[in-house]
Design a protein around this nucleic acid. Structure first.
Lengths: 235, 235
DNA sequence: AAGTGGTCTAGACCACTGA
DNA sequence: CAGTGGTCTAGACCACTTG
């Protein structure tokens, strides 16, 4: 008795596209209620479950939301969330130094360290076209029980370094961006004039119960901008 | 005959949490195949559809992916995607000037304008504790057919300004961040020394077929950092 | 051929919202 | 109260991957 829907697009996608287009074209506007699941099931000659699949895909894309007992409504889009991609994976860089150091206040605070605890400092110069474009510092709490293997460090990029100490889904990272001017020591490393404006990125690697890593990166104009994209849009 | 599952958590969430915990604890690792839908249905005394709901929620959270004909696999997490929140909605600011101007090359290029087309320039000073912390410039193509209402402009924030010209789901925005030093004209507006490093944010508002707006914002250290968060983590 | 995920049907009961 | 979305059952056929 099954109505074998065999043509190209799955019904639930047809439903989702139909509604999405009506939202983009302004036929349904933010706050408007959509037809109920039962109405849509009848209109598209299918069942509630298939209709729901379509609605849920629109919901997860941010176009609509549902209120139990009431219905589905068009979202008021938020333009405040941007997603930016940043990875060290495809960079060329060279290790400048690896050292066990006593952390300064910034690093000690970032990693929530005890008073006399030491940290591993990894400094690197990132290059583009053989010119230095970023100076990168990473700090890892020095753990006597699990001494870090320097071979690994040389080839790993940031989050992956600490992933070895835990499972890969047990931590997250944060990022903060500021503009600062190049101090003399930085200018020397980056081969640029003192006072040049640098884009500074600070990153934390955090697991449920501890601070696994802290990174500071100073980027010259040659590094290029950090770019992102916002929001709800048909890709 | 229905086995009335009436206790608190829905079965599909129990299934998802169970698998998620096994992934976080490293019992299942990236690349590992999970039990099949049928196996899980049997193990949790439910049906494939309920199992699928749980698996799909893990999939949309980035923990796993599915390959038709093969099975479900634990993802290799990506740490390169950060989400940052940025909105002008809660800022205090004052309009500095609104003008119809001939765009310079940067603006004309950003908005893909014809040679002699004019743009509306809105400049604003953002303040914190009565001190200027950002200088904000917005450019909107001047459209003779739909002259912009200045009253609206004074109170709207960026994406919402152009939303009036189209439907709210028909456009997206991009963002780019750099560090630049304060030129003299900027230093005057921001009441800061010439040469101070500024965080510069450029934004584009883009619809399917046209460029609706361009914004440049120069932020002093007083504005604070731009912050973000990455990745897959149990919220 | 056997197993997998992807889609779909035709029902069901529940908790919730609003008139 | 009737209508809504949330959850769930017990089947089905399909295309795909692997042996």
């Amino acid at each position: 008795m099954t109505r074998t829907k065999q043509s190209g697009e799955p019904i639930y996608i047809v439903i989702a596209e139909s509604l999405r287009n009506q939202i983009i074209d302004g036929i349904f506007n933010p706050g408007d209620m959509l037809p109920s699941e039962n109405d849509l099931a009848e209109k598209f000659s299918t069942t509630r479950i298939t209709v729901r699949k379509g609605l849920k895909s629109l919901e997860s894309d941010g176009y609509i939301y549902s209120r139990p007992g009431k219905g589905y409504f068009v979202s008021t889009p938020e333009y405040k969330s941007f997603s930016i991609d940043f990875t060290e994976a495809n960079e060329t860089s060279r290790i400048r130094k690896i050292d066990l150091v006593t952390p300064n206040d910034e690093v000690a605070g970032a990693l929530h360290l005890e008073a006399d605890q030491k940290v591993l400092e990894i400094s690197r110069i990132v290059t583009k076209n053989d010119l230095p474009v970023a100076y990168d510092l990473k700090y890892l709490p020095y753990d006597k029980g699990h001494p870090t293997i320097e071979r690994e460090i040389q080839y790993a990029v940031f989050p992956e370094i600490v992933a070895a100490k835990t499972t890969p889904f047990a931590f997250y990272t944060t990022l903060s961006l500021t503009a600062e001017s190049a101090k003399e020591s930085l200018a020397r490393e980056l081969n640029c004039p003192v006072g040049v404006p640098l884009l500074v990125m600070r990153r934390f690697i955090i697991s449920k119960d501890s601070f696994l890593g802290y990174g500071i990166r100073y980027m010259t104009g040659g590094f290029g901008p950090i770019t992102g994209k916002s929001g709800v849009f048909k890709r």
